[in-house]
Design a protein around this nucleic acid. Sequence first.
RNA 1: GGCCCGUUCGUCUAGGGGUUAGGACACGUCCCUUUCACGGAUGAAACACGGGUUCGAUUCCCGUACGGGCUACCA
Length: 503
Amino acid sequence: MSVRVRFAPSPTGALHIGGIRTALYNYLFARQHGGTFILRIEDTDQNRYVPGAEQYIIEALRWTGLVPDEGVGFGGDKGPYRQSDRKAIYQKYAHDLVRLGHAYYAFDTPEELERLREAEANFTYNHRTRPSLQNSLTLPVEAVQRHLAEGKPSVIRLKVEPDKSIRIEDLIRGEVVFQSSELDDKVLLKADGMPTYHLANIVDDHLMGITHVIRGEEWLPSTAHHVLLYRGFGWEGTMPRFAHLPLILKPEGNGKLSKRDGAKFGMPVFPLAWAGPTPEESFPGFREAGFLPEATINFLALLGWHPGGDQEMFSMDELVQAFSVEHIGKSGARFDYEKAKWFNQRYIQATDNAALADMIRPMAEAKGYRTDSQFLADVAGLMKERVTFLPDFVEQGYYLFEPVRTYDNEMLQKRWNPALQPAFEAVIEQFGSESPFEAVHLEPAMKRFMADSGIKPGDILPLLRLALAGTMKGPGVFEMAAVFGKEETVRRLSAALAHFLGE
RNA sequence: GGCCCGUUCGUCUAGGGGUUAGGACACGUCCCUUUCACGGAUGAAACACGGGUUCGAUUCCCGUACGGGCUACCA
């Protein structure tokens, strides 16, 4: 049977980076087995639905390259893939389960249950308490019929039989055992007619032919209920295998990574920026920060999984090859932003200049800078080994785009000396006569010229740098000169000399 | 509180009954470089604790501690 896996997020806002990792592992597993990767939108909670979240999820998957084979926005013949469009299906199955004796109607109001929980801290709706509550197991048949006919608000609950051991063979954790007596009678169908996660999930996974459920660890405790549902429906024979992923933890302190941690620690925790109704509900994204999708994926892949060995850099194809559920770690992984930055740096270094030019162009454009391909590619070549993020090219390399307006005064005081004027002028003149104007020629030629003229490179080189860039940081003097070209180089040097002379 | 899961350098991790416990990020030092980086070399840095089992346990078992998750008509 061919592998079918799904990524099933809830459109309650921006999808954080942990969600992308879950999608990634599902994707890798599907690709490796020649299987199908499905996107299902779990929007069964009307109250938490956030407009735009679904589009965000799809865009985030496209950006990271985790493109589904089937699902909302991607076609497929097992749809619809949006749970709110499947309401009638769940209702049918919920009622089937009642008929089969594995579920029942319950009429207790949320308020009544709330009171019970307040009265008894550990109150649970289960095999012990249900005989004293308002449901189709305790009420006379006529009363149940009447309530149903009158449309009295009701839910359908799973009838968990006590005294049974439920064993789950988790692909990551091995055998996990639960005692049914400790399980509650989970609500399957809510009073508004929508299913809860538990019902919708099992029905959909079954109907969509899902073979492996790879999801976050927060679902491990309810997996026992899910097994009971498969049994209740008589689907145990085709029940998917489960793999529960460890969670991603906060960069510092305790607990799992949350939305707010981005602002708290000054780093993005979302793949894409999210514009909420208020600044507090808006979040920065990896994409907007200037991460390459490949770097983001490589970083996430290794957060909780490693194939063994010492390899750090993995292309998507290599990940597909190397991936295995057995090598997923069991403990939570702390979100390590420094490592993410390092990956990005490595990927930028490994990207060719022409491709970088295309990525930089919008940023150069926004600043009103030159945007021709050759120049941007040259800038990329000069800066790629000293940047971390894409915007750094134009932000740190501003002097490549703009004329120098200010010179590092401290360095100027230290390096400039009026006695150097003739040497500096000679060097400017020599630059003007060099050809070809390329770094490989310029560097030896100029150094030879200085040696022949009795000019100490140590006196002049720092000044040339200052003259060309205004700052002591940056690419090699001759490399910059070559990118500027003869005319611009001489212009910058002359302008700088005038400034050095106090004009 | 109850149930479930986990625990190797600060972080991500490899490993696995006998190893100098390996790599990467971050950090220190040095080299390269008359800048800043890249790169190279090198250093400091870990098997939570207590009992077993065993000739031998970081590795297997049991406890304890600590961490995490769940405990909604949320997912």
